[in-house]
Nucleic acid binder design. Structure first.
Lengths: 213, 213
DNA sequence: TAGATTGTTAATCGATTAACAATC
DNA sequence: TAGATTGTTAATCGATTAACAATC
C-alpha cells in the first residue's frame, strides 16, 4: 500500500534541487526551521509555488510554523534519489573532463566517481585524481564488475554518438552529456541529460542584450 | 522604423541555442538546407515548435524547401547577441574556474576570456592559459580600462554574494554563477544565470530512479 | 486564544501542438 | 503542375499564482 509517487514535472525537480542546495546552506549555518516565503525570497520565486513543489514530497510542514530543515532535506533527497551513493564514470578525459573529475560538488551530493575512460592511448594508465585512466574498450568489462549508475560524457562532438552506444551496451541507464551535439539513445530507457556551458553563456548574453538597446 | 523585437520566452531562447549548435554541426558537414522536421527529430522536439521558435527570428524559410542553414545560423546569433565578441572575465580560479578557463566551447561561440581574478595571494601573478591571475581588488580598475560584458563566477559559496557586489560595482551587466548558492543582485539590471553541475546530475538521477522501481 | 503559515482549490497565464491555408 | 514545407491560427495542455479555509 505504498502511496503512488505523484507526477513531478521536470521544472519542479529542478527547483527541488535548488531548494535542497539552499536548505543545506541553511543547515550549515544552524537554521532548524524555514518557511515557504523565506525559501521563495532567496530564490526569487513565488511562495505558492514553493509550497506546491514541497507538497509533492509527501512530507508536511507545520501550519503557523513552517518546515523542519532537516526533514525537508531528507525528503527532497529521497525524491531525487540522492539519499544513497551513485556510482559514476567519466568518459573522455580532455580539458573539460579533467576539470569535472576534480569538482567537489559531485561527491558532496552523493555522486562517487569510480572510473575514467579515454580512447587516447597516450593517456591510458596515467592518473586523474585518485583514478587511473582506462581504455574506452575496457568500459564494458569494467561495468560487469562494478555497478555503475551514471556516465559523464565529455568527448568531442564527432565521437559522442558512438560512445553513447558503448555506454548503453554497458548497461548504464543515465548519461550526462557535455559533448556539444545532440546524441540519440538506442534504448528508450536510457536517460540523457544535456549540459552545455557555452549555451548557458548564450542564455545569459540574450538576457543582457536588450539592456544595451 | 525598426521592427520591435518579438517577445521571446526563455524556453525558446534555450532551444534556439540548441538549434544553433546543431546547425553549426550541419554546416561543418556541408549541409546547405534544412527542414523544421529534421531539426525537430535531431533534438527530439515537435516540428511545429521548431517553426514557431524560428518565426521569432524574422528570417523566413522557403515553403516546400526549408531553411538555409547559413541564414538560420546568422539570425539565431543575431537574436542571441552572439554575432559579435563578448569580453568575459573569470572570477575565482579554483578547480572549476581553472577548468572553465580552458574550455574551448566559449571561444567558439564568441566569448573571449580577457581576465582572471582570485583573492588567494598565492595565486596572484601565476598564469592560467595565456592570462595572469590578478587580485580581486584590482577588478574594478581593470574594468575601467577594458569593456567587460560578462563575468563567470566560480568562487566558494560563502564568498559568492560579496563578489557579486564587486562585479556589479565594476559595471558588468551579466554573471554566470557557478557558486553553489543563490546570490542576489543589487541592481535590477544585473542578469544572473545559475549553473550547477551537481544539480544537473540530480536531475538525471531523478530521471533514472523510476526505472529501478 | 490570536497570529501565522500551510495545503489546496480555482483562476489565470503561458507554452505546446495539431491542423491547414498559403506558397515555393 | 504536383508535392512538399512553411507560417500561423485555434485548440489543447500544463504550469503558475492568488486566495483562503484549515490548523498549528
Amino acid at each position: 500500500m505504498t502511496k503512488p509517487r505523484p507526477k513531478i514535472s521536470k521544472a519542479t525537480v529542478t527547483r527541488l534541487a535548488f531548494y535542497l542546495r539552499e536548505l543545506q546552506q541553511m543547515q550549515r549555518s544552524g537554521l532548524a526551521n524555514i518557511q515557504s516565503k523565506a525559501i521563495a525570497e532567496r530564490l526569487g520565486l513565488n511562495d505558492s509555488q514553493v509550497r506546491r513543489d514541497i507538497s509533492c514530497l509527501g512530507t508536511v510542514g507545520q501550519r503557523g510554523v513552517g518546515y523542519r530543515v532537516q526533514e525537508l532535506i531528507e525528503s527532497i533527497q529521497r525524491v531525487l534519489g540522492t539519499d544513497r551513493t551513485w556510482n559514476v564514470i567519466l568518459v573522455g578525459v580532455g580539458n573539460l573532463g579533467r576539470a569535472l573529475s576534480g569538482y567537489r560538488g559531485f561527491e558532496q551530493q552523493g555522486f562517487h566517481l569510480v572510473g575514467a575512460f579515454d580512447s587516447d592511448s597516450k593517456k591510458i594508465g596515467t592518473s586523474i585524481g585518485s583514478l587511473e585512466i582506462q581504455r574506452l574498450d575496457d568500459l564494458s568489462s569494467f561495468c560487469q564488475s562494478h555497478q555503475i549508475d551514471l556516465a559523464i560524457l565529455a568527448v568531442p562532438a564527432d565521437a559522442a554518438q558512438g560512445v553513447v552506444r558503448e555506454i548503453e551496451n554497458a548497461g548504464i541507464p543515465g548519461i550526462l552529456n557535455f559533448a556539444p551535439i545532440a546524441v540519440q539513445a538506442t534504448s528508450k530507457r536510457t536517460i540523457i541529460q544535456e549540459v552545455d556551458l557555452a549555451i548557458e553563456l548564450q542564455r545569459l548574453a540574450f538576457g543582457v542584450v536588450p539592456k544595451a538597446q
